[in-house]
Design a protein around this nucleic acid. Structure first.
Lengths: 147, 147
DNA sequence: TCAATACGCGTGTAATTACACGTATATAAT
DNA sequence: ATTATATACGTGTAATTACACGCGTATTGA
């Protein structure tokens, strides 16, 4: 007997359930830092993609281009991110400010606490299978999401 | 060498990436139905929880109570869901209308196409490990999310 | 060179998500 | 019975998500 009798066993439904649950947990740890786990991930990605354009960063995040544009607004307002126009005037070169790097570094211990808490609740084995399932899915569907 | 060099290997980051990616794919299949995969999942849950309150349905969806309240607005506007007050006047008894049941039934083939497409892209084995990882995570963290 | 096409981006609109706060109802304590 | 507490919910605010549409810039074709 399934724990979810009568349900359609929708993979997307499960993903959304789990993502809400896990995101709330991470957010709770990050409250003292003043940023969300989504913002933490964006800062982290921007750090690794210094000077890249909105579209390329959005692709790595598997995020719609316009979504990233919107999500950058609070990060710019907080003074963590700047946009500059380069040789190709259509593109916006994104980069972290010093304050942005500082905020990211300050949030990292709290992020680690959240990650460790998840590991303790799930167990190493289940956490690994979760991470592996995500990586495999990105590998199959993501085109070329990472790097 | 990881595909994500320098990254922090954040489980929540991966979950959010994958959920965005997969949700967009399901949404594409559901376009002709006029509802999103999130709405499909809510209708599906409401069908299985006829007459239940906002808080209880939100708990099953692993959704904040106020989020469900907001998400019900378009479903009520489309005439798919109604709210009634029962014996306990604090509670709202949720239920699908006939139109809601019809819309859900009409969307099911498209949902199945999306689910099948995901299975074909990931392969049966990877899809199963993805589903299992979600179930295990919900089992460990969700308290009592399903049923 | 100049038109046609492709590319990168912003904005309008609307749904999704959740916290903080307040209100109304029910239950418990005295 | 009355007060205190707990429960269920709505709203303000703000971030997250993405599609449709339009504008400016670059590249390509003739």
């Amino acid at each position: 007997m399934s724990v979810n009798p009568g349900s359609l066993e929708c993979t997307c439904y499960k993903l959304r359930q789990v993502t809400r649950l896990v995101s709330r947990a991470y957010d709770a740890f990050l409250v003292p830092c003043g940023i969300s786990i989504g913002q933490f991930g964006m800062l982290e990605t921007l750090k690794r993609m210094e000077g890249e354009s909105i579209s390329r960063v959005a692709h790595v995040l598997q995020m719609d281009r316009t979504t990233l544009t919107r999500n950058l607004t609070p990060l710019k307002k907080m003074g963590f991110v700047v946009m500059q126009t380069g040789s190709d005037k259509r593109e916006r070169a994104l980069s972290l400010t010093t304050a942005g790097k500082r905020a990211l570094a300050a949030a990292e211990p709290k992020w680690r606490d959240a990650q460790t808490s998840l590991e303790q609740q799930l167990g190493k084995r289940t956490l690994k299978s979760l991470n592996d399932a995500m990586d495999a899915t990105l590998g199959h569907l993501g085109g070329d999401p990472c790097q």
